[in-house]
Amino acid sequence: MILFVANPVIKLDNVWKVYRLGKIDLPVLRGVSLDIARGSFVVILGPSGSGKSTMLHMVGCLDLPTRGKVLLENQDISAMSEDQLAQVRGRKIGFIFQQFNLLSNLTALENVMVPMIFQGSPEQERIGRASSLLNSLGLKDRLHHTPMELSGGEQQRVAIARALSNDPEIVVADEPTGNLDSATGEKIMEILMNLHKEEKKTIIVVTHDPQIARYSNQVVHIKDGQLALNHYSEEKILWSSK
């Protein structure tokens, strides 16, 4: 059940992830293969415990497969050192989490600047880029507020700004609307949609909410650690695994 894409930005090749709980091996991913094309908007759909978050962690270079290969721009991430992985996460990938995961003792502006510090951007550049990102996301008046002083939607917008701070090619989002009401969630999805359309970023969203799928041009269903369905929005007929 492999779908070939010419020159994929991310390629999962028979990826297994097995957690060892005491003496029992618990396979979370069981031979997942998937190509993600540059500039696509992929939604990975699946119930909780299906292994979709684990898959996202591999795509985002946060975790390494037990078996199989994850290739990021044709490079095997298992062969990279921890520092190289950190570098890749910092430069090429932007993360958006369900819990927003902002640093609570920093202001919105500072939160957005943190990834740029790790890349060694000079201070003026950091401030300039971070504030323009926040401005474009409608947070002009919130630059110096700490996460505690922001609403959920605002926090997630700060998190999006942070994910974009180093202008990554890939944005991965783990249940980005999971902690938001539907109206706010829709706004967040629209922002991601714009990133995909206007800035040609590769967006990968993990969710259990089928409603989200309508934004994407590729939907991957995952169940019990295996791909169940992988189809493209422009196709009328869905591509099924079994």
Partner: peptide, 16 residues
Amino acid sequence: TKEIGILKAVGAKNST
């Protein structure tokens, strides 16, 4: 711990 995870996710190296 969580904060360390966040920092690592946004590109902090171990040395950082």
